[in-house]
Amino acid sequence: MENHNLPTEDLKTYGIIKEDLTFSEKLSTEDVRKFLRGYTIVADNDRNRATFQLTDNNTQLKVIFLERDKSLSEILKQSKEKVQYTDIKDLSKSPADWNIEKKAFIFDKENNKTVEFDCIKNATELTAIIADQKDLQELGRYKSELQKLKNYLSDKIDQYPEIAKAIANDINIVSRKLDSVTRISIEDKRMQNSINSDVQINVNDRDRYEDANRVQENEEQQQEEKRRFRR
């Protein structure tokens, strides 16, 4: 890749490089290295997100402005309590365009940070993480978000016949995860019902209750006999 033909004026406009043509201190050496190799720089500010990528052999700067339906600070704060979902809209496209991405934010307690997942690109990993929480309410929330995403994609597939195959592939991914979540929910409910049933038996089974009482009475009698023997 060529680096001497960088779109310096555009890079200055967005604060990626300074007037002396050095890169911003906000970017690490690794960030700069990846950026020059075609990786995307992401800048977040409240509900807004901007992405920057060099194209055409590093001679053009591709800029995309996105908007969340929630502020980033709100997402990060609430993610410590439960998984947060947000829709990200591409502001460079019209409302009629296919311009929505759904993200999930999960707090990683081990590393003390919130991690972002794409509900399609990271669907397998995201489903596994949520299922591992063993929380039926959280599974229900996830299932609802997947269903809304599927409905959105289904509405779009007829509008964009030229990319219908790609949209259909995304719908298939979401559908498979919906099926997985349904199976997991059923299995978790059965397990919970089994646990509750065992608890009920332990508390209400008259024979078991009386057996337990007899064991306790026998133990008390043995203790009394030991005390008498020691006298």
Rank of each mutant, 00 (worst) to 15 (best):
Asp170Cys: 06
Thr13Leu: 14
Lys103Phe: 15
Glu2His: 06
Asp179Lys: 10
Ile129Leu: 07
Val203Leu: 09
Gln133Gly: 09
Gln78Ala: 12
Ala131Gly: 06
Met1Pro: 14
Ala128Glu: 02
Gln84Met: 02
Ile16Gly: 04
Leu61Tyr: 10
Thr59Val: 11
Leu61Trp: 07
Tyr142Asp: 00
Lys26Pro: 00
Ile120Asn: 07
Lys34Tyr: 01
Asn218Asp: 15
Gln221Tyr: 15
Val215Thr: 14
Asp46Thr: 05
Thr59Pro: 11
Gln221Cys: 06
Ile41Met: 01
Asp155Ser: 12
Glu220Gln: 13
Gln216Glu: 14
Leu66Phe: 05
Val115Phe: 00
Lys156Arg: 12
Asn204His: 06
Leu153Gln: 03
Ala104Tyr: 00
Leu6Tyr: 05
Arg183Glu: 10
Gln216Leu: 15
Met191Phe: 10
Thr40Pro: 02
Trp98Glu: 13
Tyr152Pro: 05
Asp179Leu: 08
Asn204Ala: 05
Thr55Phe: 03
Ser180Met: 11
Thr40Gly: 04
Ile75Gln: 01
Val115Met: 02
Arg227Ala: 11
Ser175Ile: 04
Leu72Arg: 13
Glu125Cys: 05
Arg68Glu: 06
Thr59Ser: 15
Arg227Met: 11
Glu225Leu: 06
Glu2Met: 12
Arg231Val: 08
Asn45Arg: 10
Ile16Pro: 04
Lys18Gln: 11
Val83Asn: 02
Glu110Cys: 02
Phe65Arg: 12
Ala168Thr: 10
Asn3Asp: 14
Lys156Gly: 08
Asp20Lys: 08
Thr114His: 01
Gln137Lys: 09
Arg33Ile: 01
Glu2Gln: 10
Asp118Val: 07
Asp46Ile: 05
Asn218Val: 10
Ile129Glu: 00
Asn48Leu: 12
Pro7Asn: 02
Gln223Ile: 03
Leu27Trp: 04
Asn111Trp: 02
